Measured scan of single mutants.
Amino acid sequence: TYVQALFDFDPQEDGELGFRRGDFIHVMDNSDPNWWKGACHGQTGMFPRNYVTPVN
């Protein structure tokens, strides 16, 4: 499953995934309602669910 970033996200903690608005992120785990795990630009980490939108 892929999502697209609605906003820039700069990691604040180790293990978070940084990205820029418009980036596509491969979702690896969406079991938590607020923080998902994904991959983008060769990196993996957690990111806030409300920063992304589903891609059809």
Rank of each mutant, 00 (worst) to 15 (best):
M46L: 13
G38K: 03
E13R: 14
E13Y: 11
D8G: 04
Q4G: 02
A5E: 00
Q4K: 14
Q4T: 11
G45M: 00
W35G: 02
T53M: 13
S31P: 03
W35N: 06
E16L: 13
R49Q: 11
R49I: 05
G22M: 04
I25S: 02
P11W: 02
A39H: 14
F47V: 03
H41E: 10
C40Y: 05
D10W: 10
G18K: 13
V27A: 02
D29T: 04
F9R: 13
N56Y: 06
L17F: 06
G45K: 02
M46N: 11
T1E: 03
M28R: 08
T1D: 06
G22F: 04
A5Q: 03
Y51D: 00
L17K: 00
A5T: 01
L17Q: 01
N56A: 13
K37Y: 15
N30T: 15
I25H: 01
C40V: 12
Q12V: 08
F24Y: 10
W36L: 11
N50P: 07
F19E: 02
D8L: 03
F7M: 12
S31N: 09
Q4V: 06
E16V: 09
W36T: 03
M28L: 14
D32R: 07
F9Q: 06
L6N: 08
D32W: 03
Y2T: 12
R20F: 07
M28E: 10
R20C: 11
D23Y: 03
W36G: 03
Q12L: 09
H26L: 13
M28T: 14
F24L: 14
P48M: 06
G18A: 12
G38S: 02
K37M: 12
G38C: 02
S31L: 06
R21V: 10
G22K: 04
D32H: 07
D10H: 10
A39T: 15
R20E: 12
P48I: 03
N50I: 08
G15I: 10
D23M: 05
Y51M: 14
D14V: 12
M28Q: 11
G45P: 00
V27G: 00
N50H: 14
W35Y: 15
P33R: 09
D32K: 07
G42W: 01
P54F: 08
H41R: 11
S31I: 04
R20P: 01
D10Q: 15
Y51S: 10
T53A: 15
